[in-house]
Design a protein around this nucleic acid. Sequence first.
DNA 1: TGTACATCAGTGAACGCGCGTTCACTGATGTAC
DNA 2: TGTACATCAGTGAACGCGCGTTCACTGATGTAC
Lengths: 199, 199
Amino acid sequence: MKVTKEQAEQNRLALLEAAAQLFKQHGVDGVGVADICRLAGLTHGALYKHFSDKQDLAAQAFSHAFNVGHARASGAQAGRAPTLERYLRNYLSPRVRDDPADGCPLVATACETGRQGEGLSQSFAAGFLALRDGLAATLATDGPTGDRQALASVYVAALVGAMALSRGVAKADPVLADEVLAQVHAVLGAWPAAATDGE
Amino acid sequence: MKVTKEQAEQNRLALLEAAAQLFKQHGVDGVGVADICRLAGLTHGALYKHFSDKQDLAAQAFSHAFNVGHARASGAQAGRAPTLERYLRNYLSPRVRDDPADGCPLVATACETGRQGEGLSQSFAAGFLALRDGLAATLATDGPTGDRQALASVYVAALVGAMALSRGVAKADPVLADEVLAQVHAVLGAWPAAATDGE
DNA sequence: TGTACATCAGTGAACGCGCGTTCACTGATGTAC
DNA sequence: TGTACATCAGTGAACGCGCGTTCACTGATGTAC
């Protein structure tokens, strides 16, 4: 049965939301399209009216999730740029570690993006650049190499890596998992680059 | 048909090697047990004479791959401890990025370990601790928080994160992928903690 | 050393199941007149 | 505004396929005598 344009667009968004949540929780390879459609309240056939295939859905869901999260994180009060401390708190929280669906898609899909299609890689690269730029703007000084962008790359890498490591060890050693997040938070917040940070 | 004890042990190692290689390339969820057994030169039934299930194989293959790689990286000449620069070169090389089978299992499975069983998480945690200790021993000074272990955690997180990010953007933007590795290499090698490094 | 036989690593057919994708069909929407 | 009808988002059965695991069987190994 046909459906109003507004309803169709709403269904498309529901598919994106459901896909983003499940992909972040279980990985692209760990979720079936039927699960996604069920969570969105549709049957699996409908998916192919909005997306060409699972890879296309993954790429668009990544962009959607990143943009939503980025807007929420960096613009609670519009125009007020977030501080470095705010980035560290958002990224390195144990709550987010234990609930990947709430976290950044950059962390959730970092290791498997290389194994997926080029579309997802493009969304991933755009997300990385946006996060790196956002972080660079919060840094008080240039890094040891006199290159603020390079320093921001290190910060993004450390944030993503710390969360991935924390999640990886969590089942075997929850104490270590918390320790890693706390250590990286403390060190990244205390570097000279952050010393003159306003907050 | 039965087989000599030596042959059986050799087959077990072949399964571990094949599993490590394929898991690193395609992820645990991205490889079938039949593929692993085929690469090891056996049929899929044989696997269950050596490992209780796929999760058990994943956990043991991780430990095997990590120990082999760690020994090779840190002990080419036995007793000679590797320098920080050596760690950076090993971990952040574009060659390893393009051939995950040759790389560290910590990077390859970081993001998906949280979704797998507790056995893999235990192997993963042991690998993380070993790498963190190895790196801590190469650092010339404590970090800004006066805690050398915390600084080593940041280094491991940055190495793992940088490689994951580089692999993620590689398909969409190969130049950016190389840039990230070079930037992280430069910054981590130039921190005060590395300033008095011997090499 | 020679023989009889229990052991068990490896084989390959079979299991039930879920995968991604296709497609003929449905029927409310939205448009042309 | 009222009517006829083309559009197309959504449905659900069906496709071929590969998944992880089980199990009856094979036959060389390795041991007990």
